[in-house]
Design a protein around this nucleic acid. Structure first.
Lengths: 144, 144
DNA sequence: TCGAATTAATTTGATATCAACTCATTTCCA
DNA sequence: TGGAAATGAGTTGATATCAAATTAATTCGA
């Protein structure tokens, strides 16, 4: 029972990989006082049009209420501004501030360098993993 | 910048997949009042010898302090017993109780049925994903 | 054998996560 | 046009997660 579950469960393995990667990217973003999740969230707001909660939550694959909470520390730091949508006052527009954009621009090269290392490490394994295949698989899981 | 990050980042995609799968398995385990993570934790204690924190935390890819916290609700419910290790009183042995074993036995078939559905869905995609390849990729990420 | 270094786990404080419930606004239809 | 239904967010309470600091026990070296 245990052998089958631990050996087979994609959920278990995904949670474990998520924790491992989160720690790794949290560490590289620490000089900017950002977590991997905050970096991804800021990135997802970096669009021509300020998106709504309902745009961003599915994009990140998270519950709307999680997004509400995740925005709080970024708002406090002035990286994000949440504004009532003028055309539908139920909605909110999530604006990346200048400070947010600036921080993102500084963090981006760090992200890229670390990700290059990760890709290289996967390709260099005895059982080499193609990062593109893995991306496709994760995409499928994220949609499941 | 945003396109590259969202398109490429394995960390982002893994976190998203982890959230999606967590919701899915949390839902199927809800009748047992278990989360996906609690199921995995209980499973990881189901061994001939009661393991220590230091055995289990790396197996789950989590920090020891996370494990300490995660054990609390399971202890309260009498599914797990944490006992000082007699041979080294710094350490703890994590025992699955009879109640824990019984709950696990009831939840297991539900897990298997749901996972069969997940595997089938991945194989049935236009861009079919081989669950075994994906497992191997996740394993590599979990070790990275 | 005594004290320093190491090891195992816990505590603390912050963020992350979800479901269920609630509040406010808009839509839609009778 | 007035009220019910639907929609978009926020709140609450529980668990999950980590790093940093702390406590307790063991090991190891002089």
């Amino acid at each position: 029972m245990t052998a089958e579950t631990a050996g087979r469960c994609l959920c278990f393995r995904t949670q474990r990989a998520a924790r491992t990667l989160a720690r790794r990217f949290d560490a590289v973003f620490r000089p900017f006082d950002l977590t991997n999740g905050q970096f991804s969230l800021l990135m997802s707001l970096h669009r021509p049009e300020a998106p709504s909660m309902s745009d961003v939550a599915p994009f990140l694959g998270m519950d709307r209420s999680t997004l509400t909470a995740a925005l709080k520390p970024l708002e406090r730091r002035g990286l994000v501004r949440v504004a009532v949508d003028r055309t539908d006052r139920r909605g909110r527009r999530l604006h990346l501030t200048q400070a947010g954009r600036a921080l993102l621009a500084r963090a981006f090269p760090i992200w890229r360098a670390e990700h290059d290392r990760l890709d290289d490490a996967l390709r260099a394994l005895d059982d080499a993993v193609d990062p593109n295949d893995l991306r496709a698989g994760l995409e499928a899981l994220g949609r499941s």
